[in-house]
Design a protein around this nucleic acid. Structure first.
Lengths: 358, 358
DNA sequence: GAGACTTGCAGAATCGTGCCTTCCAACCGG
DNA sequence: CCGGTTGGAAGGCACGATTCTGCAAGTCTC
């Protein structure tokens, strides 16, 4: 006998629900999706039966039919075999967290994908759109996605003429300039820079902003480069910078671990912070509020970036982006702490404050 | 004229490839998937035509047909609206990184999903399996997934009788016991604990191991609890612990930021580390190698856990897990640094009066 | 009370692949 | 000459949902 569909072993399908509810497949679909014109009684009945059978619609079938998967790719830059770099941990974690939240709030889920052009995985997942972190010039993955008509929003302004759908970034030049002005006002005469050897936009723009500032203010640049993905190289570079004959009296470190590395190096050379050396680094880590002394940090606001990137992307996916600007600049925040204030207000020992600091 | 398929606007389908190559759909499918019996000449020809048209098979259609999506869910615990907790940043980031790598290496991609039972997103994505971080007892999401026949592997041994497919965890009792022994050998007389208010397995097992150790060694437990997701509460709790009349001469902090918080608190009270206070915390962060003094940390080896979890899950998905053990214990590593090594011949100053001998 | 309109629902096409079945031609030994 | 085997490729169904079209019955209007 060929029963309605008796061979189903595992999950219940829409046919089973229709049969159990005594209605047609169309009615079930409409009732569950709130689409057709059905009396509430039928809707409730169908929903109840579906619940009773534990029915879950097949995501694959729905995606095939509607062309929308509800999935957003999150591309992470890769060093060697490992996805996303060591030095961007806190930044990436916060950015990804915000992006995940924002996506989920709008009914999308995030898929982590490698920046490599290994087609295997990319073509195995149906994406409605993709977030690309710091795409390289002429990025083959981005080009291919755009060719397929898939929106791409990048974190970090795209290098070259990469025609991304939209991008979000900080104003790195302004951030670095403000920061150097801040150090200068605090009494710095010679500001050094700890920078990276990579050619990504962040490193490039920050470094050139530093060089511009030096040229404008007539200071000789004093900087050390190192491969940012190597934590040991960072400590060595910090040491090198403070060992120079033209030792700077203030240092800005572009990467997260630079703060502790510089602090340790300063200690080795007997330099007191902030009396002998002013310190600022770019970091999202909360540890710099509790170091001795607390270190001034530049925050790139990864939460806001992650949120903005996803909003822009979903707007583009859903066609809501008409007339909206395709570029968005997120302000940075300089969290001034003791390490960059030459005249410390001689802080009285205060107990830790509560969340509201009331 | 009704051409083969002239209405296709966007991407090329398998039909277009078949038409362009002058073969049937079956042949294209077989050629690209290496399935049928075809001469190499035909294979190459079809592949070349497919490349020329920029053909990418529809992931949705393939998933619908084969029942395999190549997607693995990564469930993150949620506090409030934000996915994954503040305090587990470095742990989660490293674990997710390793899991992503391991999955990609075997041709799978990772989807980040919330632990909430909001069915919307969960049912919108076709998963071959799921990794659950620290599932709660009777977790409805896990139960539902297992009911649907989807393998679930958990990071952290499941509470209660949750019938997960497999799990990976550290031996938290052994880790804490070893760590306390280490502190005791370094001269600690009264070891305090900074723990959390949450009921997850990690917190629970670690705390009970501490209490057991205290009972076994005859020490009075000295501990402070705080909501682990609140960074300010952590600083306050650290302060509270060192302000107690029965102040400990060694502290173990269960969460990542405890190290810097305790160090800052010790400084406020004029306690030198390690001379007056021995310090250990559980962290994956590299900053503890550069603090003053460097702090001994317990590493849970999140990279190994992430890798193991994914391997187990994919083995289960692909049916390779017959006879394999369904539980795997990853060893921890105590990275001994200055903060837990008492200077050798220094006479220790006896701590403030407390109930001695009992 | 007859057309016009609305309500409630069913039939069936369709999305793009994978794969099972069928079919043809060529080849081969006896 | 003929049945059997094998290489090569096409036909067509199924995966499980969405949705367009359409039909019957009820309601309204004048």
């Amino acid at each position: 006998m060929s029963g309605p569909t008796g061979r189903r072993l595992g999950r219940a399908g829409i046919r089973d629900v229709a049969a159990a509810a005594g209605v047609s497949i169309t009615t079930v679909s409409d009732a569950l999706n709130g689409k057709g014109r059905l009396p509430d009684a039928t809707r409730r009945h169908v929903r109840e039966v579906a619940d009773r059978l534990g029915y879950r619609p097949s995501a694959a079938a729905r995606t095939l039919r509607t062309g929308k998967s509800g999935l957003i790719g999150l591309t992470v830059t890769t060093y060697g075999d490992e996805p996303f770099t060591f030095t961007e941990f806190a930044y990436f974690a916060e950015m990804a967290r915000a992006a995940t939240s924002a996506a989920l709030a709008r009914g999308y889920a995030l898929v982590i994908l490698p920046a490599t052009s290994r087609h295997d995985v990319w073509s195995n997942v149906a994406l409605d759109g993709t977030v690309v972190i710091d795409p390289s010039d002429q990025d083959p993955v981005v080009t291919e996605l755009l060719r397929q008509g898939i929106p791409v929003v990048s974190d970090g302004r795209p290098a070259g003429t990469l025609p991304v759908t939209a991008w979000v970034d900080n104003d790195h030049e302004a951030a670095v300039t403000d920061l150097l002005d801040h150090l200068s006002e605090a009494g710095a005469r010679r500001i050094g820079l700890l920078t990276g050897t990579t050619t990504d936009t962040y490193t490039r723009l920050s470094t050139s902003a530093y060089l511009d500032w030096c040229r404008r203010t007539g200071q000789d640049p004093v900087y050390e480069k190192y491969p940012a993905h190597d934590p040991y190289a960072g400590a060595v570079a910090a040491d090198r910078l403070l060992a120079r004959p033209d030792r700077p009296d203030a240092v800005y470190g572009l990467f997260d671990p630079n703060g502790t590395d510089l602090l340790a190096a300063a200690r080795r050379y007997g330099l007191r912070v902030p009396d002998d050396l002013l310190l600022v680094c770019c970091s999202e880590s909360a540890v710099y509020a509790a170091t001795d002394p607390p270190i001034t940090t530049l925050s790139l606001k990864p939460r806001r970036i992650g949120t903005a990137v996803v909003q822009l992307l979903i707007d583009a996916i859903e066609g809501l982006d008409a007339g909206r600007p395709v570029e968005q600049v997120i302000p940075t925040e300089l969290m001034v702490r003791t390490s960059s204030q030459r005249r410390p207000p001689r802080t009285t020992i205060s107990p830790p404050r509560g969340p509201t600091g009331r």
